[in-house]
Structures are given as structure tokens and as C-alpha cells.
Design a binder for these strands. Structure first.
Length: 421
DNA sequence: TCTGGGGTCCTAGGACCC
DNA sequence: TCTGGGGTCCTAGGACCC
């Protein structure tokens, strides 16, 4: 059996954990730039505020709804606390996303997982203030379904177990096809058009049809829904195959110089992530674009991928290439919404094949040492203590974050940094 | 005026190899 | 009339997740 533990309205719950006055009141957490709602309290959902709902569209009509800018340092730290407690109960744990994890319950049959899960839920609420729902079933996909049932049917206990084929069938019939883990909007529309409106009907389709129309991914899900476990647990976080960083500007940007500085900042962030997983990249893709929400003739997007001569994770080299890409693809006269970078074709930094045409291999070694020193200082003294000059110092392109809560859980280190500086 | 950011996997088709 | 067989690698595009 597997359990899926999912934090309810996670970002909202994190904000509430430190600001009790927000409890029981409709509220939302906004995306970067305070653009749209990405987490909603139950009350806000009930009022009709949708996921991704643009803030400016409900700001005036819902003045009583509290809002917070997203504060990922807080949410990440809270998830760390939550998963640590879960591990005490169910050590075979896969952290699937910032607000949910799977646990393998093999070996827990005699201990009655439902009772354990109920106790776990109580401890989480007491120690972190985060309410969770727990679904338990034979496969991961069924555990997802059980979790939905827990949210719908067992509001007070927050735990729902599918232990018999009859219970599974009932839960499948009660789950709309579009709500199944692995069915996106495209397939949902198509299946509903065919009369396959719920998960139970889906499991009755012939396997070869599912394979042909929905690839091996669809077939795997079909088998999981029928009780055959085929999505294994992943206990260790895998190295990323691509690392991207992008942000929207606080307001539309027209100035190339400003965009080059923003780009340098994002390249630095991505390169630091790359180094932290001890890898280098062989390709870099840089893009910029205007908003999708403006008149067709005002829209513009540019981007270009470059294969590197020698793989690297060095800020300086990557910034130089990234900026030259932006300079050549940039077109004057548009109001840009965002610029971004994607580093790909990633491999371990122990497997670097030097280019035959590399004229300064020694230089490369020296720079790598400087970067190492920079990472060390930034780890100790806090992010951005030392950074590349190309990132600029005016910060006029930074995000709008007008409603960010205090750094409740990470503030101490902030103070230490100030003292150290 | 104002609409997020970061990922994964699969498949088909083309280029190329012997 | 009739023109092989077996691969790999890369890329773009589609679908999905939170």
C-alpha cells in the first residue's frame, strides 16, 4: 500500500501558521509580481476565486480577501519540517513536490496504516500548524484518488483508505476523468467527448486503445487505476536535466541594458544551481518575450540556443554568451514582459571534454577557483554577498512583491548576515 | 496598467552511420 | 518489374505535473 500526504492549501496554510489573524478568513497567495492567485484558502475557493485568477480582476470586487506575495523561503522551510515529522511515522518517503509526499507502507499491515496516519495528521497540525489530507491505497495513482476522497468525504479525520475492490470501484466512479493524476486537459476533453466521464469508465477501456492513443504513459496510469502498481517510489532526488530561470519584469521593459542585467542575474542563479548539483551544461538557451495578453501586432518573442565549445558552469562565461544572444536577437520597440535562460545537456563536472579549439584552458581553471570562492562566501554570508558586476546594481527591473509576509522561519540567519557584513 | 515559474517524459521524423 | 537491413542520435512538438 502507498500513502499520499498532501498539505491543504499549502502556501495559505504556511502564512496562517505565523499569522493567526488570517485563520478562517478568505485569503490567497499570489504568484511572482503579485500577478495571480496560486494558492487559495477554502473560503476563497468558495467565493469563486480560481487558480491562476489575475489579481487585478478580483482586487476591487473582493476587498475582504487577504493577500500575500509568495514567500518561497518560508514554504520550503515549512515543508522541511513537515517531511521530517512524516519520516518518523513512515520512513520510506518520496518527496514528490513542495506540498506532497508518497510513502511506501509495505510492512505496515499489522500496524494498521489508517490509525497511524490519523495520529500523524494530528501531530503535524499540532507541531507545524499545517493541515494535511492522507490517502491510502494499493498504487500511487489510487492513493492520489484516495487523497481527493479524504478532502471531499472525510473532512474531519482527513484520512481515507481504499482497502477493498468495492471501495476502489466506488472511488473511481466518483472521480471525474479530468481529476485523475496524469490526465491533463487535452485528454480529458477527448475522453469526455467519447462518454468516458469518470475514472471507472476509463479503466474499462481496452488496453491497446489506451496504449495507441495515450502512449505508454497512459497505459501505465490505466494499469495503476486497476490496482497494478507500476510507478515506483523515487527516494532520491535526481539531478536535473535542465535548469531554467526566468522572471517577469515588475512592469513592461523596453530598455536593452536593463534586460541584459536581469538576464545576467538569472544566469547566475541557474549556474549556481548547476554547480550545486556538481554539473556543467553543454547548451544554453536565452529568450525574451512580450506579454501574451496584448494586441497581436504588439507581441514578439525571440530566443536562441547555443551549443558550447566546452561545457561549463561558470557564471562569467555563461553570462557573456547569454548576453550576446540577447543582444543579437533583441528587437527594439517592444514592451518585453520577461527574459529567461535555460541551461541544458547537463552532465557531471567530472566528465568535461575539453575543446580542441580552447585557447585558454589555464584561464578556465583559474576562473573556476574564483567561482568556488564566490560560492563559499555566498553560502556562509548569504545569497548575493558577492555577485557578478554584469547583474547591475540598480535593480529597477525587480519583481513587484507588495504583500510579502515576514521571514518568520529564516529571519535569524538574515540578522546574522547583517552582523557579519 | 495589471495575467508565475520550474520541471518531466514520450513520440515521430530526419540525418547519419555501417 | 525488380533497388537492404539495422542501427544511433538529435530535435521539435505534445502532453503532463506542481
Amino acid at each position: 500500500m502507498y500513502a499520499l500526504i498532501d498539505c491543504n492549501n499549502f502556501y495559505v496554510s504556511c502564512e496562517r501558521a505565523f499569522q493567526p489573524q488570517l485563520q478562517d478568513k478568505a485569503g490567497v497567495v499570489l504568484s511572482n509580481n503579485d500577478g495571480c492567485a496560486i494558492a487559495r484558502s477554502q473560503e476563497a475557493k468558495d467565493m469563486g476565486i480560481k487558480m491562476g485568477h489575475p489579481y487585478f480582476q478580483f482586487r476591487d470586487t473582493h476587498r475582504d480577501v487577504w493577500v500575500r506575495s509568495s514567500n518561497y523561503a518560508l514554504y520550503q522551510d515549512m515543508m522541511y519540517r513537515v517531511t521530517s515529522i512524516i519520516r518518523k511515522y513512515f520512513p520510506d518517503q518520496e518527496i514528490y513536490s513542495i506540498d506532497e509526499c508518497f510513502c511506501d507502507l509495505a510492512g505496515y499491515a499489522l500496524l494498521d496504516p489508517t490509525t497511524l496516519a490519523t495520529r500523524l495528521r494530528g501531530e503535524l497540525l499540532q507541531c507545524t500548524g499545517i493541515p494535511v489530507c492522507i490517502g491510502i491505497a494499493r498504487t500511487k495513482t489510487l492513493a492520489k484518488i484516495a487523497n481527493r476522497m479524504a478532502k471531499k468525504k472525510s473532512k474531519d479525520t482527513g484520512v481515507y483508505t481504499l482497502s477493498t475492490p468495492e471501495q476502489e470501484a466506488e472511488a473511481l466512479a466518483a472521480t471525474e476523468i479530468g481529476d485523475v493524476w496524469g490526465i491533463g486537459s487535452r485528454h480529458a476533453t477527448r475522453l469526455v467527448d467519447m462518454g468516458i466521464t469518470d475514472a471507472y469508465k476509463f479503466t474499462a477501456l481496452p488496453a491497446d486503445w489506451v496504449l495507441k492513443q495515450m502512449t505508454i504513459v497512459g497505459l501505465r496510469m490505466w494499469r495503476e487505476l486497476r490496482g497494478e502498481s507500476c510507478i515506483p517510489m523515487e527516494y532520491h532526488r535526481k539531478a536535473k536535466k535542465g535548469i531554467g530561470t526566468s522572471r517577469s519584469f515588475g512592469r513592461p521593459e523596453t530598455n536593452l541594458k536593463v534586460m541584459l542585467e536581469a538576464l545576467a542575474t538569472y544566469v547566475s542563479i541557474a549556474a549556481a544551481k548547476l554547480r550545486s548539483q556538481h554539473c556543467v551544461c553543454n547548451r544554453i538557451y536565452v529568450y525574451a518575450r512580450t506579454s501574451d495578453h496584448i494586441k497581436e501586432q504588439d507581441r514578439f518573442a525571440c530566443g536562441l540556443e547555443v551549443k558550447l565549445l566546452t561545457p561549463t558552469a561558470n557564471d562569467g562565461e555563461l553570462i557573456r554568451i547569454a548576453q550576446s544572444i540577447l543582444r543579437t536577437t533583441f528587437k527594439q520597440g517592444y514592451r518585453y514582459q520577461k527574459v529567461g535562460v535555460m541551461l541544458s545537456d547537463i552532465r557531471p563536472d567530472t566528465q568535461v571534454q575539453q575543446s580542441l579549439f580552447d585557447t585558454k584552458p589555464d584561464n578556465r581553471v583559474r576562473i573556476a577557483k574564483a567561482i568556488q570562492a564566490m560560492d563559499k562566501v555566498n553560502r556562509r554570508e548569504g545569497r548575493d554577498t558577492v555577485r557578478m558586476a554584469a547583474t547591475g546594481n540598480e535593480g529597477q527591473w525587480t519583481m513587484k512583491q507588495e504583500h510579502r509576509s515576514k521571514r518568520f522561519t529564516t529571519k535569524l540567519s538574515e540578522i546574522i548576515v547583517v552582523v557579519a557584513k
